[in-house]
């Protein structure tokens, strides 16, 4: 972040992704981007725009709408010397290739006794809030984080988007970079140079003394808003952006809870079975004696993402829900 301050430049989350991918295509001759509408269209979200002209059709190419084949291409190519960047347009579509993810990509190295190395980077777009209904809005990151053998990062800011894309593509393991739709237009300071955000390191985005909010992806911004509101109730909330859910930076979270003695975990994914349950469990296991209140959780209700704007607005977790949950838990 120091370097960002040296040469302040504000760009969007979507532009930051482009810069990360460009950096990798420049530095790794055996890297390529494969996926639906990644080349000609530059992705429906626009983050590969311009890269086809820059790198040519051998480095970015459009695939058929065949997620099994796309993910399998990544597995087979990575096992034989390439460093594929695989694009799964909407995270919901990962369901189409869960065998390739679960049984092949995640396990091949282990099953082969370490003989296979799979440097596959998967970029995929998660999240609701754009009236795209039940099959184009989900946050399924807990499926992935449950699989030994893969890493899962979830950038909330432009700075992290660029740095995590670069770190993911340089990593010799399968890494899912779970992006977020409503974050695409967010602006933030991003250095022009090539840099990595280390995978597995959380980030304190707002310091506080008596409450910890652990937030995932876009909920980081909602958590910061909530912290501002909570200040009016006499709470000085610390906000942690986990950035990576697999591996999870448990140490940083525990350190914060030992200081604040209270915690809430928030993510946009369905609360039941979400990664928040794991984080809450780890907090009570490792910091039980420090806790002055139950660990609270905020997530989406146990429902598919609805289409109607009114219903979707009701569905989505946000700052107000975080504040309400904190007040309920602390009875304030």
């Amino acid at each position: 972040m120091e370097k960002a301050k040296q040469q302040p430049r504000s760009i969007t989350y979507v532009a930051a992704i482009t810069e990360g991918v460009r950096a990798i295509l420049n530095e790794q001759d055996n890297a390529f981007v494969a996926g639906e509408d990644v080349a000609g269209a530059g992705s429906v979200f626009g983050y590969y725009r311009g890269l086809l002209a820059e790198f040519g059709e051998n480095r970015l190419f459009d695939t058929p709408i065949s997620e099994k084949a796309i993910m399998g291409l990544g597995v087979g190519a990575a096992a034989t010397g390439c460093r594929p960047i695989i694009d799964i347009m909407f995270m919901d579509f990962i369901a189409e290739c869960m065998d390739e993810v679960t049984n092949q990509l995640a396990k091949m190295r282990y099953m082969f006794g370490g003989a296979a190395t799979l440097p596959v980077t998967v970029l995929t777009m998660s999240g609701g809030g754009m009236n795209m209904a039940a099959q184009h809005s989900q946050c399924l990151e807990a499926w992935l984080a449950h699989l030994p053998g893969v890493k899962v990062v979830m950038p909330a800011t432009p700075y992290d988007a660029k740095g995590l894309v670069i770190a993911a593509a340089r990593d010799n393991n399968p890494v899912f970079v779970v992006l977020n739709k409503l974050s695409l237009g967010i602006r933030g300071e991003v250095p022009e140079e090539v840099y990595e955000v280390p995978i597995g390191k959380a980030n304190v985005v707002r310091e506080g003394s008596n409450y910890t909010i652990v937030a995932v992806s876009r909920m980081v911004h909602e958590a910061v808003k909530a912290a501002d509101e909570l200040a009016g109730l006499g709470l000085d909330a610390e906000v942690i952006d986990v950035r990576s859910i697999q591996p999870l930076d448990t140490a940083l979270i525990i350190k914060s809870v030992e200081k604040t003695h209270r915690a809430l975990v928030v993510h946009e994914a369905v609360r039941f079975g979400g990664i928040g349950g794991e984080i809450a469990a780890q907090i009570q296991e490792l910091a039980f004696d420090h806790l002055d209140a139950p660990v609270a959780r905020v997530g989406a209700p146990f429902s598919p993402v609805p289409f109607s704007p009114v219903l979707e607005a009701t569905y989505m977790p946000n700052a107000a829900k975080i504040v309400a949950e904190v007040r309920k838990t602390l009875e304030i």
Partner: peptide, 13 residues
């Protein structure tokens, strides 16, 4: 899908 990916790699490389 994996064999196809290896075949792609052979061509790409």
């Amino acid at each position: 899908p994996i064999a196809m990916g290896a075949a792609f790699s052979n061509k790409f490389r």
